[in-house]
């Protein structure tokens, strides 16, 4: 646990420092005035929690009678507890059913980190003793397939790829056929990045799920949306739209090793209650960590893990 947390902390240090500084300023002289709580709200807004969620969390703190006697650390603790409370219900491990193969579909906007995350996931499952196959269904972006093949080679797993511009759903179908024939445990399907406002591409994503459903009515067993931690309030629209088109079953947040804080997970958790499975805190395969609400909230407020 401490290993996990130090890596998580290493990624989040800068962001939490900013948040922590803000709180120290909010705490100031000793008693917490309403004005200071307003400053606290600004700090949460700066972490991308959004205006209304930041306001509600501060409102919850405002009702806490103990608050004015709290020191800086105490205030951070209270804030972390409030944020964790929002995230607790969506902290869920990615549990895979007994199907063979288990089909995992990866989706997200361009540049969110789908392919990299797939590479990390493949390594993770290989380390668990599973056999994994990857399907390079991003046939649109130049060399996307090559990128996945490099990850496949690194993790030592086969990659099913097609010609550039090939039909993505047809390729997904072929990959599932092959995964079945080769008795593979887990098939992970990479898809092209798409903006959620692009209806044609969202329909294509829907088609992929429909087509693989013809081979296995229960597939895909998990459809994961990869969200970039630097994204602002549009992340909520992304989650909503991908939930509609691809029946997303869970979230992975990437790029928490930068200075971004990923606070948009809080409004998403409240609004859509989508499970959050993993966070990406670095380049290495082991930097894909299981999401932990308490530690995430504590790291966000500049506290050590429990």
């Amino acid at each position: 646990m401490s290993g996990f947390f130090s890596r998580l902390r290493a990624g989040l240090t800068r962001s939490s420092r900013a948040l922590g500084d803000g709180i120290s300023a909010a705490f100031g002289g000793g008693k917490l005035s309403l004005e200071r709580l307003g400053e606290l709200e600004d700090v949460l807004i700066s972490a991308d929690l959004g205006v209304s969620v930041a306001n509600e969390i501060c409102q919850a703190l405002r009702d806490n009678r103990e608050l004015k006697n709290m020191d800086d650390i105490g205030l951070r603790e209270a804030l972390a507890v409030e944020i964790a409370k929002q995230l607790q219900p969506v902290q869920q491990q990615l549990s895979l059913p007994t199907a063979k193969p288990v089909v995992i579909l990866m989706a997200g906007v361009n540049g969110a980190g789908k392919t990299t995350t797939i590479g990390k996931l493949a390594k993770r499952y290989m380390a668990d003793g599973k056999t994994v196959m990857l399907a390079a269904c991003d046939t649109f972006r130049a060399a996307a397939s090559e990128q996945l093949q490099v990850w496949g080679a690194r993790a030592n797993v086969p990659v099913v790829a097609g010609a550039p511009g090939a039909d993505a759903s047809g390729l997904a179908f072929q990959a599932l056929e092959r995964a079945k024939a080769e008795n593979v445990d887990i098939l992970i399907i990479d898809t092209a990045g798409r903006l959620q406002s692009n209806e044609t591409l969202m329909a294509e994503l829907e088609k992929i799920t429909r087509v693989i459903g013809k081979l296995d009515a229960t597939a895909p067993h998990a459809s994961l949306l990869v969200l970039d931690a630097t994204t602002g309030q549009n992340a909520i629209q992304q989650a909503e739209a991908f939930l509609r088109a691809a029946k997303i079953t869970g979230l992975i947040m990437t790029k928490l090793d930068g200075t971004a804080r990923g606070g948009c997970l809080v409004p998403i958790a409240r609004k859509l209650a989508l499970p959050i499975h993993f966070i990406g805190v670095g380049e290495q395969a082991e930097d894909l960590q299981e999401f932990d609400a308490t530690n995430f909230a504590r790291a966000l407020t500049g506290l050590e893990g429990e």
């Binding site: 962001s15 900013a18 807004i45 700066s46 972490a47 991308d48 906007v109 540049g111 970039d228 630097t230 994204t231 602002g232 309030q233 549009n234 992340a235 930068g258 200075t259 971004a260 804080r261 606070g263 948009c264």
Partner: peptide, 15 residues
């Protein structure tokens, strides 16, 4: 830079 970037845009751009 991504138009969809959130609050962190200032830090990233400044750095």
């Amino acid at each position: 830079a991504d138009s969809l970037t959130g609050q962190e845009a200032v830090t990233i751009a400044a750095q």
